[in-house]
Simulated assay, not measured.
Amino acid sequence: MEKSKVYFTNLRAVPGMNLLQKLEKLVKKAGIEQIDFQNKFTALKIHFGEPGNLAYLRPNYAKVIVDLIKKQGGKVFLTDCNTLYVGRRKNALEHLEAAYENGYNPFTTGCQILIADGLKGTDEAYVPVPVGEYVKEAKIGRAIMDADIFISLSHFKGHELTGFGGALKNIGMGSGSRAGKMEMHSDGKPRVNAKACIGCGSCVRICAHGAITITDKKASIDHSKCVGCGRCIGVCPVNAIVAAWDASHDAVNKKMAEYSWAVLNGRPHFHISLVIDVSPNCDCHAENDLPIIPDIGMFASFDPVALDMACADKANQAPVIAGSYLAEQIKGHGNVEQQDRFCSTHPDTNWRSCVDHAEKIGIGTKTYELIEI
């Protein structure tokens, strides 16, 4: 397979060329202007960050991409889907408030924000995945699938379940509706925390399969009837219904790759990753730890598989920051230079299972040519 081109720029800046200007130069060199944006709805997929976390990408970076797309005649919007876990981004109203709190709004970014899977995470499109080994029909936020063009802007960092979170995680997991995220995270069905349940019946009313009943003012779920759609999680006012979280790490990674295929297949797409503030955990945390490696730079490519590989390779060549969680993890475990930064941070994870599977199902290639500008 022919090598994919991945473009890279470091974070050095001089008078007359700041980082935002370098980002614009990078994506232009990488070919983003080859896409016909004229009058096309363009989804710019990003993670707005859980409030309390300060490692998420600043909205300034998004504005660079938004302005460029608008100059090309595109109808661009920033987007993400609601979370499966309990937090500030569980429904569209709180999600928007969290985004605004973190600086994302039409005034700072130059475009509107749409939560792709709607108010309660149930506005989804069903996308066939003929190449899927795990997923036969992906459940993707409808606004993302309604777009003509898909662009991802990712913060590359560690992740406690997938090893790292890069382009494929932003695309696949990030674009899944609540039911889609449940499918990726779980082999099982949701359950009820009886202590928290108040017996309000919201879950009973939302369930289309008659799987939930109220007994003695407590809800219970009949797993023989439950299809794992996750709608009950979204409507519970006290967060008493939780996902199973029981899929193996490799299974999550492979499902995530198959969801990425569903998002990207059949339309133009382009991908940008910033390897900065590389915290050990996801931006979904309401806190961020000390970065595990120094800032590296900005990357762009039409191939998200090659992009993730290039970011991972550069990260693995970087020194470990003293006093970081990674430094604590590898203390006394041999030659630091030979250790994978992300597997060492979270030893139970295997990030390669995602890029390997993504290459296998035809999203892109792990073989790349790195072009520095």
Rank of each mutant, 00 (worst) to 15 (best):
P106A: 03
E50Y: 02
N350I: 03
I46Y: 01
E337G: 10
C354D: 02
I115S: 06
D313Y: 02
L23S: 11
V336F: 10
S260I: 09
D308I: 14
G74F: 04
V66L: 03
G234N: 03
Y134E: 13
A358R: 01
G210L: 04
I330G: 03
F150E: 02
A286D: 15
N253F: 00
H357D: 15
Y100V: 15
D117E: 04
N193G: 06
P319T: 05
Y134S: 04
P106S: 03
N281L: 13
S202T: 13
A240L: 04
K195T: 14
I46S: 04
D283C: 05
V86H: 00
M256H: 05
K225V: 07
F150M: 04
L153T: 04
A13F: 13
G230L: 04
R88M: 12
A99D: 14
A116M: 07
E94F: 01
I198R: 06
C200I: 01
I35T: 12
S273F: 09
I65R: 03
R352G: 12
N335W: 08
E359T: 05
Q338P: 07
G210Q: 08
R352C: 08
A99M: 09
Q339H: 05
L96C: 09
D308P: 05
A247K: 06
F37E: 10
P268V: 06
K28Q: 09
G74Y: 05
R178T: 10
E24N: 12
I140Y: 12
D313E: 15
R178E: 02
G323Q: 03
L20G: 08
G121L: 02
S344P: 06
Q72Y: 10
E369K: 12
A99C: 06
H269T: 09
C197H: 08
F302Q: 07
E372P: 08
P291H: 01
A92W: 03
W351S: 06
F270H: 11
V14M: 12
A300I: 11
F8K: 03
I140K: 02
T345K: 08
G158N: 03
I373L: 12
D283V: 02
I198D: 12
T213L: 05
K45E: 14
A322K: 12
V320C: 10
V135K: 00
A92G: 11
I214H: 05
A92K: 15
K195F: 10
K195E: 15
D289Q: 13
H223F: 10
G31P: 09
D67F: 00
H185V: 10
Q329W: 00
I171D: 03
H269M: 02
E50S: 01
R191N: 12
P128Y: 00
K195H: 11
R88F: 11
G323P: 07
A211P: 13
S353E: 14
L93W: 14
G103N: 08
S154R: 03
K189F: 13
F107Y: 11
I363E: 10
I292F: 03
Y325G: 05
I144L: 10
A167W: 00
L161Q: 13
A240Q: 11
T349H: 09
S353T: 15
H357G: 11
K331N: 14
A62S: 15
V263W: 09
I371G: 11
I198C: 08
L274W: 00
E94A: 08
L54F: 15
K45R: 04
